[in-house]
Amino acid sequence: MNQTAPALGKDLIGLEPLSREQILAILDTAEPFKEISERRIKKVPVLRGKTIVNLFFEASTRTRVSFEFAENRLSADTVNIAAAQSSVSKGETLVDTARNLEAMRIDMVVMRHGSSGAARFLAERIPSNVVNAGDGSHEHPTQGLLDMLTIRDHMGRIEGLKVCIVGDVLHSRVARSNIFGLLKLGAQVAVCGPPTLVPRNVCSLGVEVFTRVEDAIQWADVLNILRLQLERMEAGYVPSLREYNRIWGISRARLEKAPGDILVLHPGPMNRGVEIDSDVADGPQSVILNQVTNGVAVRMAVLYLLAGGQPERAEAAKQGGEA
């Protein structure tokens, strides 16, 4: 193992507790890992012999598959558990689930859970590394990281950029991880959405608030467009999806009024015709699929660093060394 201090602590729970240096270390470590996915044989022995459990209490395709690819390409042994939240709440408690996994001698847990704070709860109770793959409305740190990596790829920097997060900020873990991470890297951050879905005190976090999406587009270099969950409409936060699209949806016509080219991100899965129109999603300013590609590299970097790897040795580790 390494003599120098680890780049990350035991767990990755969120971006709020990380320093600017730690976030940059993850992004920089992701760079050399990008190349692995472009090889004919997409496998390096960095995490050989490590056992990782992917514990998903909420349905997920994109994030779960992305973590699995990251783990497999680093040669870890993985187990996937798709625990429907309802059956767990009726029966075994979260802490019992964790202790049972621990009893089987695992090294890492990647968890998604519907309750804010669940990842930290788990991390405080088991010695394994815990990676938060989304906890309630709290954080989704690897999504925030891959968003930042994608922005940096295309804009060459993050510091000084104006990034606006558009949509359901109130319930969004992606929004929180973006806000915490982008501010640490020196970006200006704004949020925009229906006032029913933007917490009134969010400005206290250091972000600007736009109500009209036209104003956000005038201001921003980058838009990160959040998914509008159907259940928000059912709960009455917005009267209809059609109205949401008319007032807050990102359309080509709206983007063309911007003073310059705006980079468009979306964490997926998209509701085409609701928060984003197809001509934007498929248009030249969209980097949505680049985000997905970067997701695998970022997750490899996180797993490598949590396993004790050093950022500067990532390139060497790829060539055959272990973390």
Partner: peptide, 11 residues
């Protein structure tokens, strides 16, 4: 319903 709730993502 305050800043701590907003940060922690708790209703």
């Amino acid at each position: 319903a305050g800043l701590v709730a907003t940060r922690l993502g708790l209703p």
